[in-house]
Design a protein around this nucleic acid. Sequence first.
DNA 1: AACGCGGGGAA
DNA 2: TTCCCAGCGTT
Length: 356
Amino acid sequence: MTRPAARALQRKLLSWYAASKRDLPWRGARDPYAIWLSETMLQQTRVETVIPYYQRFLRELPTVRELAEATEERVLSLWSGLGYYRRARMLHAAARRVVREHGGRLPASVDDLRRLEGVGAYTAGAVSSIAFGRRAAVVDGNVARVLARLFAIEEDVKSARGSARVWALAGDLLPDGEGQAGDWNQALMDLGATVCVPREPRCERCPVEALCTGRARGLAAGLPRMVRKKAPRPVRRVAIVLASRTSVLLARRRAGALFGGLWEPPGTDGPLEALAASLGLDVGALERRGELVHVLSHRRMQVEVVRGGLGRRRSWPLPGPEYDAVEAVPVSRLARGAHSALTRKILALAGVPGGP
DNA sequence: AACGCGGGGAA
DNA sequence: TTCCCAGCGTT
């Protein structure tokens, strides 16, 4: 793209953004921590989903320092239901690093930001440009799609991370103006989210339609070419809900794996008998409650739910290698606990009162 | 380069 | 059903 054409593109899109930008809670936030938090929550997660989580998290842990000093349990609890829980662990670790190595202030450069846990190329560029006004590019799913269409890039855009060509393009297109990179990046992303959408782009509403090569060639709607994702692998599990009127037995999943650090009713991919035996239970004392299906990006989990009484036992053995802690939790505390959406479904199916 | 890692909204 | 979302870290 020629220099004048790039200028025209920047002018039109920035002007469109000034008039049409979405009103989002983190827009205009002064605090880099707030921007960082929003960008982390927004990784592979829709804006509408993030908003209530963002507001609650920022209300409960309003500064990097308070996040750094919070327990992991608390952080996971605030993340509970949002998914990709490793993000919460890494955000927590990075906050401690920011306090330890940067005096509690987030670094401004892409290179320094990238050294923080959970901050990759996209997030570093976003925080650097939006929170600090640095001239840094971003490529997320929106930007990759918008640029692929604008420049009729027909090669595969590998995942949301984008190809090297798209990153180079995004860098070239950054405005020179002081502090404009943040608005420019957000303008590209807003355009992708509201106009240049995946299925049926609303080209008639696009401020840069006249500059769009993909549009001119009739390719826009078919770009970018994405590699088809594999179907989730089916997994059968069984979960045992041991509950009294006031408590339910939960176990904590080991870190680093699926649902790491979250609490759930003991479950297994193996036979129910083995799981029951590991808890010292007689299978005959368990009542079948039904089955549910929970679909993740890489797993289709079909979970059979059985229920039994909690009894008077005070301590419980670990119900298998997936877990590193086990505890009878008061149902009154469930709503504030660190659980996945799957756990909520299991507790609901088991009929646990006051489930999260 | 491919995979593991959640959950949900929209067509 | 299918797609894909303000991605990152590991292998």
